[in-house]
Design a protein around this nucleic acid. Sequence first.
RNA 1: GACUUGGUAGCUCAGCUGGUAGAGCAUCACACUUUUAAUGUGAGGGUCCUGGGUUCGAACCCCAGCCAAGUCACCA
Length: 563
Amino acid sequence: MQLSEQEIVRREKLAKLREMGIDPYPAALYPVDHSTKQIKADFKEGKKVNIAGRLTSRRIQGKASFAEVQDSEGRIQVYFNRDEICTGDDKTLYNEVYKKLLDIGDIIGIEGELFKTQVGEMTVKVTNFTLLTKTLRPLPFAKTDADGKVYDKFDDAEQRYRQRYVDLVVNPDVKNVFVKRTKLFNAMREFFNSREYFEVETPILQPIPGGAAAKPFITHHNSLDIPLYMRIANELYLKRLIVGGFDGVYEFSKNFRNEGMDRTHNPEFTAMEIYVAYKDYNWMMDFTEQLLEHCAVAVNGTTQSTFGDHTIEWKAPYPRVTMTDAIKQFTGFDITGKSEEELYAFAKAEGIEVDNTMGKGKLIDEIFGEKCEGNFIQPTFITDYPKEMSPLTKEHRDHPELTERFELMVCGKEIANAYSELNDPIDQRERFEAQLALADRGDDEAMFIDQDFLRALEYGMPPTSGLGIGMDRLIMFLTNNPSIQEVLFFPQMRPEKKLNVDLNDDEKMVYELLKKSGKVELNALKSDSGLSNKKWDKTVKGLTGKKVAKVEKTDDGLFIDLV
RNA sequence: GACUUGGUAGCUCAGCUGGUAGAGCAUCACACUUUUAAUGUGAGGGUCCUGGGUUCGAACCCCAGCCAAGUCACCA
């Protein structure tokens, strides 16, 4: 393994500590009794505290030193004074251990008492300290000047995502996004639980991937010797539970879709789905806007949030616009009663990319997606989707071509999708069959037929309304992050390629020559090798870099030898 | 999948027309008892993403590839 200079220095310090009888990774608990936040909130001069955290900066001035310690809630300044820490004649703990063997990033425990410096900074005067964990790699803490300007912020997206642990340690704003994420989940649970809806878990490995139109990941179960799919949605399982007699069930479900990745799509993502018996989609719209107002306040303390240039107002109620009206509003075209041919011709004329695998529903969806979707910035319910696009949704009570479905649009993106759930088992079977016909026509996302789900419906599901919310997207809007990777702890990345430590062919050849010759003058070996200047240079650098050979400069010239 | 941009020290970045690889912070050494981007002096630290090519000579030019970000396409 190639170590940088700083890593080598830290390993040497580690060994030195052990020689001195200091365990750099002690087993015993450290009796923390204050967080940095508690100290600042309830500051009393002279109060004794025990804190623990990482050393994030140091300002050493001879016999005294200021440093900062960061725990999970923030930072506080600590003051190390040689004669306070080392009351006797032996000044080793300060001079050696603190000044020379500790590094920025190390995790230490501090026993001390509170005071304010001449400048008024709340500070812990250290009376004793304990090394709790030595860190072997330098952590890239940023520095902030008096004007609040940040220097050397660790902000390369690739490095931050690949090493999220580093990102979290050094970028408090990043950590805050994830704190808010969890607040969002907690707020939703609280909202549902207070209404006595029941949190459940349903299978992630499914024999039939249902409940959405998407490409699944496929895996294989060895004992059963069958293919299994990772779920693309949990809808059909939750509805089975409504059949089973629960009045309201919900689940935060990790879903998996084997599709493209970009700043709004990760192969695994989290949805929340809730189903409530004896309700319809009108009720669900009221419920949704109350839910989101509640969540916005729980996360940000206010009903408003900022996303890019937009200020989003989450306060209920939200406007409700039918899809037909939305299309009429933005294109002037009335889709009511139009045939597939007429819709196709209109889409074509508007310059929308369409092809003949598309049925009526998909054409309407394309027109809406192209011409309308992006215009809805403030939370808006778009209602009454075409039947063909909604195979799990009850037919609209007044318009047989439409369904009782809504999507909630925010900043031109869908964040929620809800129906009056289709509970007519015969209609449901026909809708699945229509999906099969679409699949035959070339739509590779059309749904499979889930016979067991149909059997469940045949036993009778009460009228039910269901809602799905894309949790990742919602938290993006609530934390002003345009990229899904910023709201996932560990977004999917291509694996890092491992460095090749084996010798390549040229290096092997030179290695053999060197083995025969022993220590030899550099240029002589170069001509023996027959390599070009560039290849020679690469090869020798490769060998020395891998600690196989070494180059020495003496008065007689440059020599190379095996290590 | 297409296009654009980027990949140089632990971090953030500079690097001219192709001519010995730079800065700040970090690290190391010395000084320094209330600092706060501490300060002063000195030192060390590099697979310039990888592999080819052009050239006397490549971080830089050319070709191929890898990784990422952004835009678009596809897609909830």
